[in-house]
């Protein structure tokens, strides 16, 4: 099978590009830890309200962990609890989220926080809130008629700016 000289150049260039992409992604993921949600904890979706930590949804300050806040969130058709999250600028936040019924999405628009919430599984993500602002949380997986009524807000508050 004869391959034209230029086709070899093109394939070398193309494959090298793909390898470069993969190396960048692998360093990001396995060295810097930027994995997408890969939550491993399972939970009884029909009884989430009585199971820790979902018996107490909300924003909790924590000490002695790698993160400063824990956001515990329960999604159900068609709302998030809590639907308003407020954290200070620069804080590291760990999200624990699950669903009480169908599959929902948990996307904080214009951030990298974007994960699927599936019945029986706890989705987890850690992020450093390094840009102040009011972010819209939307459900990005079709969950029924009220799908677009499912939204919330993340407020990343610059406390210094407020004090001034």
């Amino acid at each position: 099978m004869h391959i034209h000289k230029y086709e070899k150049w093109w394939l070398v260039f193309g494959c090298a590009t793909l390898v470069a992409f993969l190396v960048i992604l692998a360093i990001g993921a396995f060295h810097n830890g930027t994995h997408p949600n890969e939550g491993k904890i399972t939970v009884d979706y029909e009884n989430v309200d009585s199971i820790k930590p979902f018996d107490n949804p909300g924003v909790h300050k924590v000490e002695g962990k790698e993160w400063d806040y824990e956001v515990v969130l329960v999604a159900s058709a068609f709302s998030y609890n809590p639907n308003e999250i407020e954290v200070p600028l620069g804080s590291v936040v760990k999200f624990y989220a699950t669903t009480r019924d169908v599959i929902h999405g948990f996307e904080i628009a214009q951030t990298n926080i974007n994960m699927m919430l599936e019945p029986g599984y706890v989705s987890e993500y850690v992020a450093e809130m390094n840009k102040a602002g009011e972010y819209l949380i939307v459900c990005n997986e079709y969950c029924g008629t009220g799908h677009t009524y499912m939204y919330g807000t993340l407020k990343v508050v610059d406390e210094n700016a407020q004090n001034n």
């Binding site: 034209h4 230029y6 150049w9 093109w10 260039f13 193309g14 590009t17 992409f21 960048i24 214009q110 951030t111 990298n112 926080i113 992020a127 450093e128 809130m129 390094n130 840009k131």
Partner: peptide
Amino acid sequence: LKGTLYMTFAVGFVIIIIWAFCFGLFTDRF
């Protein structure tokens, strides 16, 4: 096949530009 060589490499650069733009956006966001 000079033209083909140029065109395919142009396609390659389009791919790199789009990917790099999105990667930049990704690293910019938390």
